[in-house]
Structures are given as C-alpha cells and as structure tokens.
Simulated assay, not measured.
Amino acid sequence: MDSIMAGLPALAFWGAVAVTFFSGFVKGTVGFAMPLIMISAFSAFLPPEIALAGLILPTLVTNISQAFRQGVAAALESARKYWRMITATVVFIIISAQFVRAIPQDLFLLLLGVPVTAYALLQLSGRSLALPLRNRRLAEWGLGIIGGLYGGISGVWGPPVLVYLLSVGAEKVESIRVSGVIFLIGAVVLFLAHLQTGVMNAQTVPFSAALILPGMAGLMLGYRVQDRMDQARFRWWTQVLLVLTGLNLMRRALGF
C-alpha cells in the first residue's frame, strides 16, 4: 500500500481517490473537466508535482474509453477531421512541458480563465459566438496552440477545445468523441513529456496508476447519465461547466 501512496498520509490518498471518482463521473457525463477538477482539488492538499502526476494516468485511460466508445473507425475519422487542432495541441504540450518549473502558473491560469468564463457566459445569455467557417482552420490552429501551452504547464487543455466545438455547433456524440480523441493524444504526449521532465517517476507513477480504477468507475457511471441527456441540455451543461471552470481557474490564479 505504501508504494502507491507516494509518501502521502492515508487521508490525503483517500481524498485523491474520492476526487478522481467524482471527476470521472463528470467526464462521463459531459466529456471533459476531469483533469481540471483533479488538479484544482489536488492542489489544496497535495504537493504540486504529485498533484500533476496523479491526474496523468487516470486521464489517459479514461480518454481511451471516451475516444473509442463508438469504435476505432469513428475515432480515426475524428482525428482526420480535426488534425490541425490535434497537431497544434500536441506540439505545444511538448514545448510548454519543458518549462513546467519555470513559468508562473498563476498568470497562465488567469489568462485562460477570463476569456473562457466570458465566452461561456455570453453563450448562456443566448448570444451566438459561432466562428465563421472561413476562419475555422485558423481557429483550430490558434485554439490548439493555446490548449497545448496551458496543457504542458497545468495538465489542463480542455477549455479551448470545448470553446471551439461549441462555436462550430458539433453535436453531442461527435463533440464528446472528438474531445476524447484530442484529450487522449494530448494525455499520451503529456505522460511522455513528464517522464522526461521527471514529474512522472518511481514515486508518482504508482500513485497515478492507483487512481485509474476510481476514475474509470466514475466514468462508467457518468456514461449512464450522458446517454439520457439531449443535445440542448448537453450544450447547457457544457456551458455551465465552462463558466465554473473559468471561475475556478481565476480563483487558483488569484490564490483564493
């Protein structure tokens, strides 16, 4: 047991298990927010590098399930359709991960949280912020770069992806599958990048692996809710969670 607890007190370890289960449930329901919930909650009671390491393997494994839930062919088609965003996200995760110990996370989190919150609030107010189709390629590259920059530093790159999918009106199943594909590829890259930086090591890998089971249990429960949710409610809940995501990013940045 000691080998999977990363030197943590029992209360902290079981707290991490509970957070992972809940974040898996949210991910199963709406397709995102797992790493954000984990890193936000973990940061309250875990050392920063253990918090980041802890989310990597459960995020990776749950994204495998999400990406391939409709089969390999559907996942490959999503990868082909959104290859620009995937490429930009992957490249900039690799780049930004090298600076995880040097770049102040507070500034990054604030710069992400403010626009994400503003965007989602405007969506909830009924205003259309759909990106013109002529700008779709540029938007994929730009939001992929933004997601990758934040992803390598904080382990969170979902909000820019979700903003893009909401803007182009992707339907529920496609939105969740595309998110899973992009999140999966990013999670693999994040894992490999932090093997190189040393965040993933002999102490943190067993801890992260121990969180896979509660993450998957929460995910499976969340799938049952997702399958009963219609498109309009899915978009509403996605927007609400983006608002909460953005507010939480700003809270973390400002130290509240």
Rank of each mutant, 00 (worst) to 15 (best):
L57F: 12
N248Q: 04
R251N: 12
S125L: 11
P160A: 10
L131S: 03
T29N: 04
F13W: 05
I153S: 13
G218N: 02
P9W: 00
R252M: 15
Q226F: 10
I95P: 04
V199E: 08
V225R: 13
A79Q: 12
V19R: 09
Q203F: 03
Q196K: 11
G246K: 11
L129W: 10
Q196W: 13
V189S: 09
A209W: 03
A88D: 08
F25D: 06
L143A: 06
I4D: 06
P115F: 02
F22G: 05
M229Y: 02
I37C: 09
D106Y: 09
M34A: 12
I86M: 15
I4Y: 13
G7A: 10
V173P: 01
F13S: 04
F13L: 05
L195Y: 02
Q196V: 13
K81M: 06
F207T: 10
M229E: 08
A139I: 06
A120S: 03
P206L: 11
F45Y: 01
L192Y: 09
G186R: 08
L129D: 10
I94P: 04
L213G: 10
G24L: 04
Q196I: 09
S23F: 03
P48R: 01
F25K: 13
A187V: 13
L242P: 06
Q196Y: 13
R224T: 02
M34F: 14
L192A: 15
A44V: 12
R252Y: 07
I103G: 02
A73V: 12
T59D: 13
L254P: 00
P214Q: 10
V30Y: 00
G148R: 05
S23T: 10
G180C: 00
T29R: 02
E49C: 02
R251S: 11
F32N: 06
G54E: 05
A210R: 07
G255D: 07
V100Q: 09
S65C: 03
P206V: 04
R224I: 00
A209N: 01
G71P: 02
G186Q: 08
A41F: 14
D2P: 01
L138T: 14
G142K: 07
R224V: 02
L195H: 07
V30I: 15
A12P: 04
W157Y: 15
A232L: 11
I94Y: 12
G7Q: 09
W141P: 04
I37L: 14
G180S: 00
L11P: 00
W141D: 03
A253Q: 05
L36C: 01
V30K: 01
V72Y: 12
V100N: 07
A41D: 03
P48H: 02
A16F: 05
F99V: 04
V205I: 15
I95M: 08
A253C: 08
A67H: 02
V189H: 01
V17F: 05
S125P: 08
G54I: 11
R235V: 08
I93Y: 07
R224F: 00
A41L: 15
G31C: 01
V19T: 14
F92C: 01
P115C: 03
S208P: 05
L143H: 04
T87D: 01
F183I: 12
D2S: 15
